Simulated assay, not measured.
Amino acid sequence: MTPITEVEGRRIALSNLEKVLHPATGFTKAELLHYYATTAEAMLPHLRDRPVSFLRYPDGPDGQVFFTKNVPPGTPDWVTTAEVERVTGVARMVCVQDLPSLMWAANLVTEFHTHQWVAQAQDEADRIVLDLDPGAPATVVECCEVALWLRERLAADGIEAYAKTSGSKGLHLLAAVRGSSSERVSEYAKRLAVEAEQALPRLALHRMTRSLRPGKVFVDWSQNAARKTTAAPYTLRARAEPWVSAPVTWEEIESCRDPAQLTFGAPDLAPRLRDHGDLLAPLLDRGRAGRLP
């Protein structure tokens, strides 16, 4: 029988709790649900009001992995949804607003991916994201060098950057912005990527061309497009180990000499939150959002 739990007055069916989802460590679905429950206070503000794409891996990363953008069948009527304009027409997507919604979605076994805008203002980007993706043999260590250059470049335009691991190989830089469309933010992000390549020609790359990427850090500016989504802060990733997209300090980036220093799993996040709180909390303060030049 599928166990039923009550979360803030909402009844949620939890299934297959003993299933191993991250085989390298034996991390189970019960542990996944516990992880999301214990990080919810920090995670929810970064999800709230943002239509979510789910990358689902119900049988672990070696099984079927697929994106779900539309509201899944069987979604409870108390889960908030929003209409989203797409090239193909209007779609309806989930917004994870509260702990019951988070636990219901986590039970589907998901990575959480969000747009750089909120549902109430889909024509205005409120975040800029730069995804630093290393091509082997480059690692997150090289990403840190590029990140430090980009932090200073953004600061020169009055924009304060924050960082998190991608939960895979690289880093994400995030900043709060205001008064700009997704198209304008994308243009600005591309300009930064081009400038990074010019300033760091042996390290940074703004083009996706695979043949150019070995040993370089691809500065992916394209995720600022209105239709694109990026792995949300604190989301687990569909990997053999339960890696997490974890906020990091600039001191950690400056001192990184080995990829292991910026690799965080689900068990690492509770002590990090105790020590640091939500390192991305300033992104939620609209008064601190920068304006593009």
Rank of each mutant, 00 (worst) to 15 (best):
G290V: 06
P76K: 14
A138P: 01
L269C: 00
M93H: 12
P214V: 08
A226F: 10
D59T: 12
I128M: 10
R213S: 09
K19N: 07
R50S: 06
I159Q: 08
L280K: 04
V87I: 08
R56A: 11
R184Q: 13
A156G: 14
E18F: 03
G89L: 05
M43E: 09
H276E: 09
L150S: 03
T165A: 00
P61D: 08
C144H: 02
H22Y: 13
S222F: 11
D62S: 11
P282D: 08
G215H: 13
T114A: 02
L283Y: 03
L17D: 01
S180C: 12
P282V: 02
V87L: 13
F54P: 10
R48V: 12
L283T: 02
G135L: 03
A193M: 09
A106E: 10
P247M: 01
S15W: 14
L99C: 06
L55V: 15
P3N: 09
L14H: 09
L108S: 02
V65P: 04
G158N: 04
E241H: 06
L273E: 09
L203H: 02
T2D: 13
T68L: 15
T88R: 12
R202I: 08
L279M: 13
P201F: 09
R86Q: 14
Y162M: 11
E195Q: 13
H22N: 15
E18R: 12
L212F: 11
G287T: 10
L132W: 02
V7R: 11
S180V: 11
E195T: 00
P214Y: 07
A156S: 14
T249G: 06
L21H: 03
R92V: 10
A42L: 07
A37P: 02
S53Q: 07
T209S: 11
S211I: 14
D220W: 01
L150P: 07
D278P: 05
L148F: 08
R286L: 07
D59M: 09
W250P: 04
F67W: 14
Q198P: 03
A13V: 13
M43T: 01
Q97V: 04
D126F: 07
A204L: 00
G170H: 00
R274K: 15
D98V: 03
N70Q: 14
S182C: 15
W149G: 07
